[in-house]
């Protein structure tokens, strides 16, 4: 079985972003970029399935600017066998990414597609579900456990009230939650080897997909800042403040 893994280049999760003074967008100049943390988990899961003999090939895919090839190389260093870059310099929305991925699913015929549940830049949480709709495949979102068994996969999902397990026929789309696995770090020899692994570049036009944006970003503002408060010296003082100043307890 072949596994397709979708990875997105985003701002590093440790970086606190700044909004541009003209409020047109966030400022990403000279900001450290990385693979979306949920995508690292997706790559890890695919590689583990290959190590267990469930998968035979892992193909990493990204849709984005040239620089996103760095994240494909990371995926290759982590154990993906080859990579596909759908190059686009325009702003890519989740629907556009899902359309490009849907075409690749048609071409590559994977048994499983693994994506992150959410990109930490747009916080959209859409692409996997959209890809499932476009390909007509079942979906197991927010996965904390994935068990392939013959032509089916059982996915344990993190839901608001706890955990839910569903069984899907393969091929299927899975999106990862944080506790699915703990991703490994790429080792130096693997990083070197990754440079030689195949990386195909395609344009949306090659795939015959139209990725025009459907939303306009009118403005990006910083959130209302909270006023820093005070330090209290004791539990007594805390209880007093909560009762008599903030009036949030009685």
């Amino acid at each position: 079985m072949k596994i397709l893994v979708a990875v997105k280049r985003v701002i590093d999760y440790n970086v606190k972003i700044r909004v541009k003074p003209d409020h047109s967008d966030v400022d990403l100049t000279n900001v450290k970029m990385a693979m979306n943390p949920f995508c690292e988990i997706a790559v890890e899961e695919a590689v583990r399935l290959k190590e267990k003999g469930v998968a035979t090939e892992v193909v990493a895919v990204t849709v984005g600017p040239k620089a996103a090839q760095e994240q494909l190389r990371t995926a290759l260093a982590l154990g993906a066998d080859r990579a596909i870059h759908v190059e686009s310099d325009e702003r890519v929305e989740s629907l556009g990414a899902a359309k490009a991925l849907a075409k690749l699913v048609e071409e590559e015929q994977p048994g499983l597609v693994i994506l992150g549940k959410q990109a930490i830049d747009t916080d959209n949480n859409q692409t996997g579900q959209m890809l499932a709709a476009l390909t007509g495949l079942p979906q197991g979102t927010f996965a904390s456990e994935v068990a392939v068994d013959g032509d089916k996969v059982q996915v344990t999902r993190e839901i608001d009230g706890g955990l839910q397990t569903v069984e899907l026929s393969l091929p299927a789309i899975v999106t990862t939650d944080l506790r699915l696995n703990e991703p490994r770090y790429a080792k130096l020899p693997d990083i070197m080897k990754a440079k030689k692994k195949p990386l195909d570049v395609k344009s949306p036009a090659d795939l015959g997909v139209e990725m025009a944006t459907r939303t306009k970003l009118l403005k990006v503002e910083p959130p209302a800042e909270r006023q820093g408060g005070i330090k209290v010296g004791s539990v007594d003082e805390l209880v007093d403040k909560l009762k008599n100043e903030a009036k949030v307890i009685s």
């Binding site: 929305e93 989740s94 629907l95 899902a98 747009t122 916080d123 959209n124 949480n125 859409q126 692409t127 996997g128 579900q129 959209m130 890809l131 499932a132 709709a133 476009l134 979906q139 979102t141 927010f142 999902r157 993190e158 839901i159 608001d160 944006t213 459907r214 939303t215």
Partner: peptide, 20 residues
């Protein structure tokens, strides 16, 4: 988790974006 699971799928079936 229900809305997030279901609605993007609806959006794609209708070929529209979702605003999350």
């Amino acid at each position: 988790t229900t809305g997030k699971n279901v609605l993007p799928r609806v959006a794609a079936l209708k070929d529209v974006a979702q605003i999350s």
